[in-house]
Simulated assay, not measured.
Amino acid sequence: MGNRNPARLLAPLALVAAFAAVIVVVQAAGTGSSDSTQTATVTRTQDRPARRRARKRVYVVKAGDNLSLIAERTGVSLETIEQLNPDLDAQALRVGQRLRLAP
């Protein structure tokens, strides 16, 4: 017992510190991408001519997206997204996956 190694005491503290750092980075990345993505989406929609909006609209899934967030960003109801994408598994969205938003 008298021969304590400092690494045995510091290893758990380092693990907790690393875990906390990962959480902070993930949360910061999630909030930053949501704001910039939403701004880009609004800008693109406003710049499009009216006739282009009448065509099929598609949303490309981004990291951190879920169906509720996509519905909120695009102004299309969850029910409509689910009806237009019958094979969609809301629990298994993939980055880059394309979702139909209009018939």
Rank of each mutant, 00 (worst) to 15 (best):
E82I: 12
N3A: 07
G30L: 15
S34P: 00
L15V: 15
A54H: 07
G30F: 12
L101Q: 00
A18P: 03
S68G: 14
D87A: 14
D35F: 09
A21R: 05
Q27G: 14
K56V: 15
P6A: 10
N66K: 03
F19D: 05
L78V: 05
N5G: 02
T37R: 09
S36A: 11
E72M: 08
S77V: 09
L88P: 02
Q91M: 15
A40L: 11
A28H: 06
R8P: 01
A102W: 06
S77T: 15
N66S: 08
Y59W: 06
Y59A: 00
R100L: 12
R4W: 10
D89R: 09
L84P: 01
A28Y: 08
R8W: 10
A29E: 14
V24N: 05
E79A: 09
S36L: 12
Y59F: 15
R57I: 05
T39G: 05
R52Q: 15
R44D: 11
L84F: 02
L67C: 04
A28P: 04
N85Y: 04
D47S: 13
N85G: 04
V42C: 01
N85P: 02
R48P: 01
G2R: 11
R55K: 15
R51L: 11
P86M: 04
V76L: 03
P12C: 02
L10M: 10
Q27K: 12
A71W: 01
V60K: 04
K56H: 11
S33K: 04
R4K: 15
A11Q: 09
Q27W: 09
L67S: 00
N5K: 10
Y59L: 05
Q46V: 15
V42I: 14
I81M: 04
P86H: 01
L78M: 06
R73I: 07
P86S: 03
L69V: 04
I23E: 09
R94Q: 14
A90W: 00
S77P: 02
N3W: 06
G30H: 10
G2L: 13
A20W: 13
A50M: 07
A102E: 08
S77I: 05
R98N: 05
A63L: 10
V24G: 05
E79R: 11
L101E: 06
T74R: 00
M1L: 09
F19R: 09
A7C: 08
M1G: 10
A11V: 08
T41L: 11
A40F: 05
Q91Y: 07
R4Q: 12
V22C: 09
Q38G: 07
L101K: 02
D47W: 07
V16C: 04
V16I: 13
V76T: 08
D87Y: 06
A14K: 12
Q46M: 11
Q38T: 06
Q97T: 01
R8S: 15
T39A: 12
Q91A: 14
A29P: 02
R94S: 08
T80E: 10
A40T: 11
G30I: 06
I23K: 08
R44N: 10
N85A: 03
D87L: 10
S36Q: 15
N5S: 14
R8C: 14
A63W: 02
V95W: 00
A11I: 06
T41C: 02
T31R: 07
V61A: 01
R44M: 15
K62A: 14
V95S: 03
P49F: 12
V22Y: 07
R4S: 11
L13I: 06
L99I: 03
L10S: 12
R94Y: 05
N5I: 13
E79L: 12
Q38P: 02
A11S: 13
S77H: 03
